[in-house]
Design a protein around this nucleic acid. Sequence first.
DNA 1: CTGCCTGCAAACTCTTTGCACGAAT
DNA 2: ATTCGTGCAAAGAGTTTGCAGGCAG
Lengths: 153, 153
Amino acid sequence: MSIEACREKFKSFLADRSLRVTGQRMAIFDAAFSEDAHNTAEDLLDRARSIDESVSRATVYRTLPIMTESGLLREVDIGRNLKFYVANHDNQTQQAQVVCLDCDRIFEISAPFMEWYRNTVSSNLGLTPVAHRLQVHARCDIFRETGRCRHRN
Amino acid sequence: MSIEACREKFKSFLADRSLRVTGQRMAIFDAAFSEDAHNTAEDLLDRARSIDESVSRATVYRTLPIMTESGLLREVDIGRNLKFYVANHDNQTQQAQVVCLDCDRIFEISAPFMEWYRNTVSSNLGLTPVAHRLQVHARCDIFRETGRCRHRN
DNA sequence: CTGCCTGCAAACTCTTTGCACGAAT
DNA sequence: ATTCGTGCAAAGAGTTTGCAGGCAG
């Protein structure tokens, strides 16, 4: 989906919930969609400020959950006391991550079987699945030995 | 594996690494194995202190990574800025969690296909898998409506 | 005009760290 | 006797919150 379409979708989402379409919220949206990467809250604060200088850290932290709920942002938590946020152009939910512990990269991969798995597992327990997380943490031997690999430098 | 066997295994692990077998470390071990539950560091501190009053928070935080590396403890991070620790009697690594967002429980389930999955995915990227995480977050409609479900109360 | 939204700074939670003392080998 | 382990308290990182003023609807 185009950024413009996502932008409109975000505005609609806010309107539907009787939330206000403020300059700060749109600056944070633009920051998140200006780069397809794994951004920290701080990354987004910096980038949002370069669009609208008045954006504060508090507003970023207050806005990220809203964008996450709208489905336009995916929250990626790889267990490092630090969350990453990824623009979610196509409302994808069947993603998994491979986290390289050596070159420190996060690779997004699709994991279509999660749809089936989470339904199976949850219904066995009488629960309704709402989200899942699937991650593989790995090492890059080449990077560790040579200081570079095909993923980073 | 029996607690006693695990206890000996922990002592061997420490010895092999030239780490000392201290009263505090063993108290923390005993705290972790005294209850098969998802314990926070604070839970384990309380319990360890009831065994050996001198145990400090710092030592708990310094010991948990050692126990985790030994394979006798599993670290469970469900994305809440708070880690849980589970005694790992049988060196299990193919576990997944179902986290109920309503009754706030964590269910451990086995996910044997992860062995295959993590190998497949990592080798596609030229990486060596070292760990994985698989979680399904779910809601319990019955609990939300009635305040109780078959899992809690 | 009304009440949600905001920036600021302080508070919070969990975890880590520097230091001097104490205990395991 | 050495050296590693420990408790204490302070620092640290990321995130949340109370408040008074500002702006969207």
